[in-house]
Amino acid sequence: MNPAEIAVSYYTILRKDMVRILRIWPQTFLPSVVTSALYFLIFGAFLGSRIGAFGDIPYVSFVVPGLIMLAVVTNSFANVATVMFSAKFFSRNIDEILVSPTPPWVIVAGFVSSGVVRGVLVGILVYLTSLFFAAVSFHNVLVVIVFLILTSVALSLGGLVNGIYAKSFDGISIIPTFVLAPLVYLGGVFYSVEVLPEFWRGLTHVNPLFYIIDGFRYGFLGSSDVSPWLSFAVLLGLVAVLGAFAIHLIRTGLGLRQ
């Protein structure tokens, strides 16, 4: 395929899922907004004064970046995992793409981009929701944008791999429920790693989502538990490894072809 044809193919994959995402917006956008609003209400208006502040930052403002990341991580992952699993499990319409000359990396790029668009849009909506409950300011907007997009890319790639490997509905619910959720919640959404006992602090440092949340929070607050450059490197490493693996799976057809 020439570059123009590749662009058309990429746009086709992306457009198809964007139409779906926008058509079912109460399922794709609303839940994260409602859940986040509840978190902001509880940790801001109800419990905020009892919990206190992190330095000179009110608790509710401290948790805003973490809750945005929580929404971005879960939406990016779930979107691509569900779409890929449905395409290969129900009616096999993934074959429409597999029989075409679309190169594997374009297939990966198309699926991941739709996850990124959904993840970023949900992230923005949660941020806008937070403005009703907390004073939120940016220390470095560029850091926020880079971490937002790269996190969404990494988790969309993870969702793609999960969707390819899944052999049943359980396969696309086990990872988000029993792996992703604990990693996110224990990755510092609600607290700074500094408040943890030494054992748990050490354990948190092997959790890749800790670096993602910490780096993203640096973009808002200007302070972090580890160097933002280290967080950036971990995030880039995740994208590289998962990207290469996803392209390998599509190219070889593992889990997709017989």
Binding site: T12, R15, K16, I97
Partner: peptide
């Protein structure tokens, strides 16, 4: 039309 897109047809 979508199938055409996978073959690079605008």
């Amino acid at each position: 039309v979508t199938q055409g897109g996978y073959y690079g047809i605008p």
